[in-house]
Design a protein around this nucleic acid. Structure first.
Lengths: 328, 328
DNA sequence: CCGCGGCATGTAATCGTTGACGTTGGTCAT
DNA sequence: ATGACCAACGTCAACGATTACATGCCGCGG
């Protein structure tokens, strides 16, 4: 309604200077007499005063906001990661602004610009797209963190995520071990390095000269469904499908269901990410488990740490495991 | 790395005053000569200048940040709503900071305080918990929007969501229509008015003197699972269960699966929310469909609208439908 | 009585941006 | 020639908070 109260209002009401009020709110209480503390507290309480983060940020030349850009916030895995980051940042007194880049370079650049405008303490990029703007920013500042997709060559910035190649390879080896024939990869968009790393790892793990069918797909259920339909148009043989993420796997599963195929008898499906819902809703899905809730602490630590900016060892490689459910 | 450039830097480089630079970035370009525009643009480009949202907010006494508090960001329905809000706000040049209140009053109050510190343009509360602090804030400012749970009596603030009572009643009537016996309600926490409205509506819809088994449960899969286990300890009869949301329904489903019960033959499950994944992963779930993606535009409109603060008609009641899948 | 040190507090500059207002210099009608 | 008017700027005072530095006070040793 009316303007919120400021330090001046509190100072006036409690009969001290703004400096003292500020000292109180910044915790320098050992330099203030107990009675003064009391009076400031009361005044602030009476006015319903909360220090302006804006004024504070301006003065200190640093904000407490971390911007997180994700390709698709409705993906449960992404939502889990975001929740984990928010939670971890909160413990350091930081806020997270979440924004959807929608797998769109322009959109991403616009959001990067917004983040810069907010003077974000850090920018967390999940599934970054390599653009000139991004390179430029990475060059000028060192507060960008890459998640799930490594920074493009030439960009020096910390990476948090699993070793995608190794994970893909583990799946390939598992396929070999189980003796699966007719291997198929429905991988994610090629412009994400994470996608190609997974794919390359998978091929390396298979170690076979036989060709592997490869399909490129967006990381959505709908796209996975379409690719699934294409693939299963011929279901004379039993395919073993490695999907770029769980969303794609869900889509393929639906395509299979509509053809009354059974998993894993008629079709093997392997996913990637293993969001929390799988355990409850997709007991048929074997998948690579990525520890979504480990991202937050790792990222928060990177942001909070006194910057050893050019230390190459700031990458955090999280462990993955294979979750084998009845689909494989 | 080094401090980001400011209006002064741009002004110096382009040989104009800061006012002119400001004019350029605030779009008052019809008061600047074309050559000057060019020179400012070039200088800004060269320096990589982006206006500080902090300085701007301070000067204009309003920020472009909207804080959204949710009970559980990992709930897919919540994630969909949040994504919808973020998307809609973006079109008005607003940013969303997302925070998890974790169904915890203290946590919520702390976050409310943070939001106040950020001088948020608006605060969107999904699943608000009635606390003195919240009442106090609602009293002092009129920028709080309640989502899914109506403001407690005495608080005047807009509400966006469906008519929970009517939705519950529709489910009750549907149960009657289908002749279900042994009706059970596993409803959400009583301190959410939304939960009790759904429950009361359900009871009203059933219109029967026979008792309805009622269980209170947190809105999580785990809690639903536990309640499901309790309920199904005796599975001599076929229950018809109305769950407070889809998470609970997932939990009950799992409990049923572990007892090798079949849905809907041995057990009827009805959920609430119908997040996007159901269509793909829970074809067995009938549920109340709440239009998650309609929330964003409605909320953004409320925020953007010139405030007619005491207009009681600022509530937005969204339509719901029943999604009947093979579980009922 | 003087001076020193330490405590509690006040003064004032500063952060980046904006906009009301003032200042130019030029055009044009009288 | 004068004044009115306008376009195209520049000046400067906010906005809210923090903090280095200054100030006043008190106690105490010499």
């Amino acid at each position: 309604m009316s303007k919120p109260p400021t330090v001046h209002d509190v100072a006036r009401l409690s009969g001290v200077s703004t400096a003292t009020v500020s000292r109180y709110f910044t915790g320098k209480t050992d330099a203030i007499s107990p009675e003064t503390i009391e009076s400031v507290r009361n005044a602030a309480e009476a006015l319903g005063y909360t220090p302006s983060e804006i004024g504070r940020s301006l003065r200190l030349a640093r904000s407490r906001v971390v911007v997180m850009l994700v390709p698709d916030a409705t993906n449960p895995f992404t939502a889990d990661v975001a929740a984990s980051v928010e939670q971890a940042l909160k413990d350091f007194g930081l806020s997270m602004v979440l924004a959807n880049a929608s797998e769109n370079a322009e959109q991403q650049d616009r959001l990067l610009s917004d983040a810069q405008g907010l003077r974000a303490r850090a920018i967390v990029l999940q599934g970054a797209i390599d653009t000139p703007r991004l390179r430029d920013m990475a060059l000028r500042q060192n507060n960008i963190i890459f998640v799930n997709r490594r920074p493009a060559p030439g960009i020096i910035a910390p990476y948090v995520g699993i070793d995608n190649f190794a994970a893909g390879r583990a799946v390939g080896r598992y396929f070999v071990e189980r003796g699966y024939e007719n291997c198929v990869a429905i991988h994610g968009p090629r412009h994400y390095s994470g996608s190609t790393e997974r794919l390359d790892g998978f091929l390396a793990g298979l170690q076979q000269e036989r060709p592997v069918f490869q399909f490129e797909s967006a990381y959505t259920m709908e796209a996975g469904y379409r690719q699934g339909q294409l693939l299963l148009a011929d279901h004379s043989r039993r395919y073993a499908v490695f999907c770029g993420n769980d969303m794609i796997a869900y889509g393929v599963y639906r395509a299979a269901m509509e053809k009354s195929m059974r998993v894993p008898d008629d079709l093997v499906i392997f996913g990637f990410d293993d969001n929390r819902l799988n355990e409850w809703l997709a007991p048929w899905l074997s998948t690579v488990k990525v520890p979504a809730f480990d991202f937050g602490p790792a990222i928060a630590k990177l942001i909070h740490e006194p910057i050893a900016s050019d230390d190459p060892n700031r990458n955090v490689i999280l462990p993955f495991t294979l979750t084998i459910r009845k689909s494989a």
